[in-house]
Write a protein that binds this DNA or RNA. Structure first.
Length: 933
RNA sequence: GCGGGUGUGGUGAAAUUGGUAGACACGCUAGACUUAGGAUCUAGUGCCGCGAGGCAUGGGGGUUCGAGUCCCUCCACCCGCACCA
């Protein structure tokens, strides 16, 4: 019988479903293994062939681990809140919950088509109130917690209150305002509002001000994504930065633990390095500069205190709060103009800008050591959010400062003597300081230490650790996200369960359900759409006070920061995940996803896990033990070439004879590189009258590798591939394309090889006329060698996620067994179990045909035997001066002397020796022989 | 600008520890079978060369008996950069 995948696969999927073979229980005597895919966002365009790459890999691992005796948790769900659904709602009026449901349904169909072994009974959706009640609950924990620097842990805010009552905040500076000093007496005498202001400076979820993109024409706040080239993507309206009060998560409190926690994780070094760089820990000094004729003090952070004698000017971020205070009257107009320019610029643009811009404020700072007056400038290259938003500029020792000084003709003080050439800053750390007062003649480390001692002694500076990491903005002025469980009494925020808010009992309960809206228009003053709904906005408490609800919603990463916990115990109505379930499943053993989440999602999920662990809700503080990054599958775009000013298209190899415009053509109209000209004419009305200049009777397209996207007409839908070749072929082909972590282009043409292989695999079992043709004969030594080597190789390759080489091994195995005409059960029965994780449908079908009643999913992975995988001879490459000239076979246990003698006397070697005596013979047992002349 | 990654045949790639570069496939060429072939099978296929042989892992240099693999340097491309998820 032919391999008829389209008849086999749906039935097999039905069989799995009916027998609930993917159902996972939380209690099992088997060891657990938790393999997780990164949460998909269910976009309206569905899956393309790039998305399932990681899902196939994790599915193979999940099935393989099951066959190795593990109780495997392999769930799937949806990150269902997000901007695209809301944007779509604004454009079409359809409610995001409706479109999201539709998209999820489509995603699930597409995923099921590929035969993944998800336990769908554990599916979670972040937009489900039963899910987001726990997202809100975690937010409340964050709000009611602070990071105790003495215990290095998050603790309940109550422990802070007790400390404040007894001792004030001496020794535990507020991370939100390090200058804040509150004695026990102060704490006792201030009112509730003032106390809550103090606590706000400590909370892990806190309110502060931050800038957002504001578009006046649209009356709304825009995401970075929605701002393109300095104008709104929709409509092209001007945008500017606007300060708004927003929620933040104090991730900076965890900077050191997020850094040190990386050491124990099995993530790629590249991934860890990205997180380290993102956290950006640097040691240096905070130094105060007085401002001439002003009470203002400018604080800077520097990692090179040794260069302090080379400070020639200061630069403040244009939005620095001191700018307005210190700018002199005559410079005011110009400074304001420059500030307006910078307000229109994104951080990215500012950092990447090569053109040097800046503006003198008219103010002078006083050098804290020499007393010299140094000009204070503002420039976009200094960012308000990094360090203190101000720098001491040392042009002799810093490239950017040097460029700035030259551009604005600021004289450069040379503190490096001969080492500085006047053309370029001298940035090497091996410098010897010169012209630098009491540190002249010293090297960088000792000079830095000396300066630090001096500054600390004089009280004008301190040793300081700085982080590039910034606290995470947690408010979105949007509708389609988790509502905050927060109400305001005047300006003071309370979580709904706090006694001080005095809400009636039902209003204290989670979840705070996202109200239905008819319009997604933003509220007044840049607030989100929730501000338009009076019935939601205002609540009356038991004291008859009118409280206003928070109108922002949470960002996309809120729900995805803890979803891996919910899968463990998705039905739990009493807690986000029951203790027993969380202890059993524990950390995710393998997390599969793209590198694009390196510093966003992965950092936030680590933070939430650490907080929940500190507060006693979890027994582990790192969520993802091992991380596997899958590369992208790129699109292969096809081009046709239209002769300028005509509707004639010329084939690829003839196009240079004409002047042409390349035009992207939908990949579905092309077979390999050959265009279906009739389909092309039918594709778009403006091509209906197209003419073609062919080569060899065909129209050949050009091709280029690009991101797979609708607009490039290079999207390939897995449904189409599955329909044409079957899910097993699709799965194996995706794996066969190359190493999982590498990016590679999709080429549908190449799938034939894998499909042919599966047909050959099938034919090992099947006779074309009679069907199953497996025999009970004793297998030969050679057949067993093929089998056992395959078991071993596939096992090793699967363990190290080298799926492409595992597929190759299957091909080699089938080629060899076909040559041996092997139809023996003793070989083929184990082979079905080996291939089952890769091609589960075919394996299940053959498994049943072999007479097994249980699903192959439950079958054990076969063990390989040493005696079938060892060789006792080796064909050695024999090289002369490193160049391989011949091959000779020897027993592996042959004595070296015998081998050397045989090699030297061989005719081929004698030919190359040309009578000379070799200087040396290198023999590496089991590897090679090299004769050095 | 900063950070991370990747460069091997016409194409996707393999080479797991410094030890036969190109396994396994796609494509291409020739052939067999066939009423037919977008089925199946056989043979060939890195480049140059009639051949002996030479040259080849982005470019250049180095270490080594031996380098795709280690070191230095240069180049090209891809991804991320804090409100897309």
């Amino acid at each position: 019988m032919e391999y008829n995948f389209s008849a086999i696969e749906p039935g097999i999927r039905q069989f799995w479903k009916e027998h609930e073979v993917y159902k996972v229980l939380n209690d099992s005597a088997q060891p657990k293994y938790y393999v997780l895919d990164m949460f998909p966002y269910p976009s309206g365009s569905g899956l393309h062939v790039g998305h399932p790459l990681g899902y196939i890999a994790s599915d193979i691992v999940a099935r393989y681990k099951k066959s190795k005796g593990f109780n495997v948790l392999h769930p799937m769900g949806f990150d269902a809140f997000g901007l695209p659904a809301e944007q779509y709602a604004i454009e079409t009026g359809q409610h995001p919950s409706a479109t999201t449901e539709k998209n999820i349904k489509r995603y699930k169909e597409q995923l099921d088509n590929i035969g993944f072994c998800y336990d769908w009974s554990r599916e979670v959706k972040t937009s489900d109130p039963e899910y987001y009640r726990w997202t809100q609950w975690i937010f409340i924990q964050l709000f009611k917690s602070w990071y105790n620097p003495l215990t290095q842990k998050a603790e309940s805010i109550d422990s802070l209150i007790r400390i404040l009552e007894e001792n004030g905040n001496a020794g535990i500076p507020a991370p939100g305002d390090t200058a804040l000093q509150v004695s026990a007496a102060d704490w006792g005498s201030i009112d509730e509002a003032a106390r809550r202001d103090v606590l706000m400076q400590y909370r892990l979820a806190y309110l502060d001000y931050a800038e957002v993109w504001w578009c006046d024409a649209l009356g709304t706040v825009l995401a970075n994504d929605e701002v393109v080239n300095g104008v709104s993507e929709r409509g092209g309206h001007p945008v500017e930065r606007k300060r708004m009060r927003q929620w933040f998560l104090r991730i900076t409190a965890y900077a050191d633990r997020l850094l040190s926690g990386l050491d124990g994780l099995e993530w790629s070094e590249a991934m860890k390095e990205m997180q380290r760089n993102w956290i950006g820990r640097s040691e240096g000094a905070a130094v105060q500069f007085e401002v001439k004729d002003s009470t203002a003090r400018i604080e800077v952070f520097t990692t090179r205190p040794d260069t302090i004698f080379g400070v020639d000017f200061m630069v403040l971020a244009p939005e620095h709060e001191l700018v307005a205070r210190i700018t002199t009257a005559d410079r005011m107009a110009e400074v304001e103009q420059y500030q307006a320019y910078v307000r229109s610029r994104s951080e990215r643009e500012r950092m990447a800008e090569k053109k040097i811009t800046g503006c003198f404020t008219g103010a002078f700072a006083i050098h804290p050591v020499t007393g010299r007056e140094i000009p204070v400038w503002i420039s976009e290259y200094v960012l308000a959010g990094y360090g203190t938003g101000a720098i001491m500029a040392v042009p002799a020792g810093d490239d950017r400062d040097h460029g700035f000084a030259r551009h604005f003709d600021i004289p450069v003080t040379n503190i490096f003597g001969e080492q500085y050439n006047g053309e370029q800053a001298y940035t090497a750390k091996d410098a010897v300081l010169e012209n630098s007062g009491f540190i002249s003649g010293q090297k960088v480390p000792e000079a830095a230490a000396a300066v630090l001692d001096y500054l600390e002694q004089k009280g004008i500076g301190t040793r300081k650790v700085n982080y590039k990491l910034r606290d995470a903005g947690f408010s979105r002025q949007r509708y389609w996200g988790e509502p905050f469980p927060v109400v305001y009494k005047g300006d003071i925020p309370y979580t709904i369960d706090e006694a001080e808010a005095a809400l009636p009992e039902p209003l204290q309960q989670l979840p705070v359900v996202l109200p239905h809206v008819e319009s997604y228009r933003p509220g007044p003053e840049g607030e989100g759409p929730l501000a338009n709904i009076d019935s939601y906005l205002w609540v009356t408490n038991t004291r008859g006070e009118q409280l206003r609800r928070e109108t922002n919603t949470m960002p996309g990463y809120a729900g995805s920061s803890w979803y891996f916990l919910r899968y463990m115990d998705p039905g739990n109505a009493g807690f986000l995940a029951g203790k027993a379930a969380a202890d059993y499943w524990n950390q995710v053993d393998l997390y599969v996803g793209g590198t694009e989440h390196a510093v966003g999602h992965l950092l936030y999920a680590r933070l939430w896990t650490k907080v929940l662990c500190d507060l006693g809700y979890l027994s582990f503080d790192e969520p993802f033990r091992k991380l596997l990054n899958q590369g992208m599958i790129q699109g292969s775009t096809r081009f046709v070439y239209r002769i300028k000013g005509t509707s004639t298209f010329v084939s690829f190899n003839l196009k240079d004879q004409y002047e042409t415009d390349p035009i992207r053509v939908d990949v579905s109209l092309v077979d390999g590189v050959t265009l279906d000209t009739e389909a092309f004419k039918a594709w778009r009305p403006d091509f209906a009258g197209a003419g073609f200049i062919l080569e060899d009777g065909k129209y050949i397209c050009g091709s280029e590798t690009e991101k797979m996207s609708k607009s490039k007409y290079n999207v390939v839908n897995p449904d189409d591939i599955v329909r044409q070749y079957g899910a097993d072929t699709f799965r194996m082909y995706e794996m066969f394309l190359g190493p999982i972590e590498m990016s590679k282009p999709w080429d549908t043409k190449g799938i034939e090889g894998v499909h042919k292989f599966l047909k050959r695999f099938w034919r090992l079992f099947q006779d074309e006329q009679q069907g199953l043709a497996v025999t009970d004969e004793q297998p030969s030594e050679q057949e067993l060698k093929v089998l056992h080597r395959t078991i071993k190789k596939v096992e090793e390759d699967t363990e190290r996620f080298s799926f492409n080489t595992a597929v190759s091994q299957f091909m080699i195995c089938v080629n060899e067994l076909t040559d041996l005409k092997c139809r023996k059960r003793a070989v083929l029965d184990p082979l079905v179990r080996v291939i089952a994780p890769y091609a589960p449908h075919m394996a299940e079908e053959l498994w049943q045909q072999l007479g097994h009643k249980e699903s192959v999913v439950a079958a054990a992975y076969p063990a390989w035997e040493e005696r079938y995988v060892v060789d006792n001879t080796k064909v050695y490459p024999v090289a002369i001066n490193g160049k391989t000239r011949t091959e000779m076979e020897f027993a592996l246990d042959a004595p070296q002397a015998d081998i050397e003698a045989a090699v030297m006397s061989s005719e081929k070697v004698q030919h190359y020796l040309e009578g000379k005596t070799p200087k040396k013979v290198i023999f590496v047992k089991g590897r090679m022989i090299n004769i050095v002349l």
